[in-house]
Nucleic acid binder design. Structure first.
Lengths: 141, 141
DNA sequence: TATTGTTATACTCTATAACTATA
DNA sequence: TATAGTTATAGAGTATAACAATA
């Protein structure tokens, strides 16, 4: 019930939106289990491999810099990230993930992997290869 | 940049999450252009074909009933929905979309369709058929 | 002057708990 | 008592505008 975007919408649009919704639901549930929002989940996905400046984070997350201030404030209060001063420019911080933040990120990554794999568990190997090929086409031209 | 969930995560998981993110970005942008949240967009997707009770809406949207109260309050103030009394049970409302709400929903549907189609514009017809087949497999077994 | 980041403010969105009205 | 829905409250998340510090 409440399945289709519209009877007249091409099936591929409907499928993409529904697929997005299914993945979204999984991500939301896992994030919530760790008391994180989806944006925070994305934040930690970034921080695992980067130490961005606040303004770069705003760009990555498509948020206003003031929103990032609050986001980092709350994460810092929970001991998940740190603001690190940059010697070259007194205005700038880099945001760095803490060991605790890294541990939570690792747990989340494992869970996400497992649950998303569950979503495609019934596909044949051939279909899984096809899907990866077509998805790559969509995502990276 | 900031592309992969992790180097060790299977490619199909990464692709699904990224595909979800791409769709999400489109939906968010279109919703925002109409001053709506993603949840409101889902709400109107439901109301186009249904007149649910508040409690059913809470179930569909996976929200607490108090959250739905606020959601419907704000939509009602903007003239997009109406609360309709049910004669059989004095406690119950049905939520009904107004002509204005229906018009906005139609605009959004058209835009979403067009932008999502743009995402798969470069696929061959064969790949598009394959994708629909595999997506159906994932979504509906 | 321009840039980086924070703060003040206001609003949406969400859940929990307490409440009202109806069954 | 039980159910449908609202209200009070608190907190996250967001943007805009004004601000401080640094360049």
């Amino acid at each position: 019930m409440v399945k289709n975007l519209s009877p007249n919408v091409p099936e591929i649009v409907d499928d993409l939106v529904q697929l997005c919704f299914a993945v979204q639901t999984i991500l939301l549930r896992i994030a919530a289990a760790h008391d994180l929002s989806l944006v925070q989940m994305r934040l930690f996905g970034i921080l695992r491999d980067h130490e961005p400046e606040m303004i770069a984070l705003a760009r990555y997350l498509n948020l206003d810099k003031s929103s990032v201030s609050g986001l980092i404030d709350r994460a810092e209060q929970r001991g998940l990230v740190r603001r690190v001063r940059v010697p070259e420019d007194g205005r700038v911080f880099r945001v760095s993930i803490t060991p605790l933040g890294r541990q939570i990120t690792a747990e989340i990554t494992t869970q996400v992997e497992s649950e998303i794999l569950g979503l495609v568990a019934n596909l044949s190997d051939a279909d899984r290869r096809q899907f990866i090929r077509i998805a790559s086409e969509i995502l990276r031209g």
